[in-house]
Design a protein around this nucleic acid. Structure first.
Lengths: 335, 335
DNA sequence: AATCTACGACCTATAGCGCCT
DNA sequence: GAGGCGCTATAGGTCGTAGAT
């Protein structure tokens, strides 16, 4: 009934070898020890239930096997899909993933929270960090102080989307995807568009809105929280104002979901009375009724590539931007 | 352009004080030092960009501030909602959370993976661990070897749902919720039921199926993977077999979503031709069309309580089981 | 034929690592 | 200022074999 985990010295003593030898057979890779001793050490370790203390290893080695992931909200399908990809490659490489959520976006306070999170992360001395939630426009906020401190201290950071200068980043063609969507929708016969956007400070939001409006110049834009509720409220207000666009583009599928419900609550039929399109192509998008037209992003792959990029020794030649693919579905029927 | 993080000794030297003093003002809680020294140390720390190495602190203190969360699949709304709750309380208490995914359930292999994950977790010396994905029936698997090693080594573990004996656990009234749902559905006039279940080895599945069938005795049961695809396939097969139950209960909302699409693909209208109900009440359940009838579980709260339970010094008097609430919606209209 | 030095193979002893008490 | 946390890394020791003298 040992109530404390056995240490290496105990294992070494039990096996009758030196600490160094025990360390080598249990962890060290290079030097090898004679088979019989090796066997004895392993046997002792097993019988004592030894498990190396990774914290101590990290201190001794001067490098941890922890990677940190920063997201906005893990319950959001966008982030959880990315997290899934990150965790997959971490698992392959025997790395431990720690996750931090910066919470819903709420102006300056969020920037502060984000920086606090990054500062706290530094304490972990992670081998790499993936910023999936660093969403604030501007070098100062996203890539300046906090994130800057990372690169300066030689820690490897990769941002998803709009990379702050000087930071590795996985480029996502938000603007191009949104523009392509706009073109398709116009080709379908829609003419009167309205855009449901998140906070304008978020780069991702700006890119998607700008991309969409580069094709559909006159589209009216409405900002709201970056969530299902935000989409719901924005759409409800839009309808309450008497507007009846024939197609609404929500910059996020999650917002589109809320918008769709709002349309329904107003006694209208999504798809038929008002077409609806989103962005991200989250897992459930195609299962909605009507199935939601969206711009597909390989979220898990993005997460995986982000971690690989962050882990790389050399900043790596800039990979091509992740391309977004338009998926037309029943929520935007052809006229 | 320092490429290495400054250490405490550097800060101490810079401030002209002893290591111990610096340690006290920057981390130690008890003893306090004179204001002027304190200020000097803080100034040095700031100017050097010092950030305590938590790994080293953990080794020195003999206790880490890491809590581990084990889930099946972080991209599944059920798990990500729970994770959200866990992360929230961890954040409040200044703890770091690491997440491990055991992957989709796949028989014995999954049990092995789960144990491997737990073994790896031991190396982290977490202050507490929350098992949200430990889903296998039987003491041996879920609470036996691996998990047992934790409690034996005095680490604090809490399981969500069916607790293995000897493990702290958050009880969830799966059976009661499913039974209540069955009663409500029968009250609505449904008589011919079919159940879409996940792998029978999972306790959660068993409890929900058994609870439902304790009310609706004759219900036919069909097992499939514990996912959207599983629900889709099972429903497609059910329909292909020529069966036309008037109400189908999927043990999980995620499965219900797949089932709903399968119903539609068969040219039938969910709700009208075949009623559909799920379990969990994931965020998007009410936004589906028809809105999905489900049994609501406070997932984030469950996660939060699980971590609190795991963290508690004393095993805590057994709290009441989490009660599940039936939410009747449009997918199961009254006759 | 016996001794010496060389040398690889292997292990032990012992400094650290960054921090706490 | 000293000692310790659990572990890594490396200098330095021991031993056995082998070619040189």
């Amino acid at each position: 009934m040992s109530d404390k985990a056995p240490t290496l010295v105990e294992v070494a003593a039990h096996a009758g070898v030196s600490l160094a030898t025990a360390s080598r057979v249990l962890n060290g890779s290079e030097r090898r020890v004679k088979p019989d001793l090796q066997e004895r050490v392993l046997a002792s370790a097993r019988s004592l239930g030894y498990s190396a203390n990774v914290q101590a290893q990290a201190v001794a080695r001067g490098t941890s096997n922890v990677v940190a992931l920063v997201v906005g909200d893990i319950a959001d399908p966008y982030f959880s899909s990315i997290a899934s990809g990150v965790m997959h490659v971490a698992d392959e490489r025997g790395l431990i993933v720690t996750i931090t959520a910066t919470g819903p976006y709420a102006g300056a306070e969020s920037v502060a929270r984000e920086e606090a999170a990054l500062a706290a992360l530094r304490g972990q001395r992670p081998r790499a960090v993936v910023l999936a939630g660093s969403r604030v426009v501007g070098v100062e906020a996203a890539g300046g102080s906090a994130a800057g401190a990372f690169s300066a201290s030689s820690e490897r950071v990769a941002a998803i989307g709009s990379g702050a200068p000087g930071l590795r980043s996985i480029a996502v063609d938000n603007a191009g995807g949104a523009a392509a969507l706009a073109r398709e929708l116009r080709g379908l016969g829609y003419a009167d568009f309205s855009v449901l956007a998140g906070p304008p400070e978020l780069v991702t939001v700006r890119e998607r809105v700008d991309g969409f409006r580069s094709v559909v110049l006159g589209a009216d834009v409405r900002h709201a929280e970056f969530s299902r509720e935000g989409g719901h409220r924005a759409m409800a207000e839009l309808l309450a104002s008497g507007a009846r666009p024939d197609c609404v583009f929500a910059v996020t599928d999650v917002m589109a979901v809320g918008a769709m419900t709002a349309v329904r609550e107003a006694g209208l039929t999504p798809g038929a009375d008002i077409a609806l399109a989103g962005f991200d192509d989250i897992p459930l998008a195609a299962d909605l009724a009507p199935a939601l037209t969206s711009v597909s992003l390989p979220l898990a792959e993005i997460g995986a590539r982000a971690l690989e990029l962050a882990l790389a020794d050399t900043p790596a030649a800039d990979a091509p931007a992740i391309t977004a693919e338009v998926r037309l579905r029943a929520s935007t029927p052809g006229h």
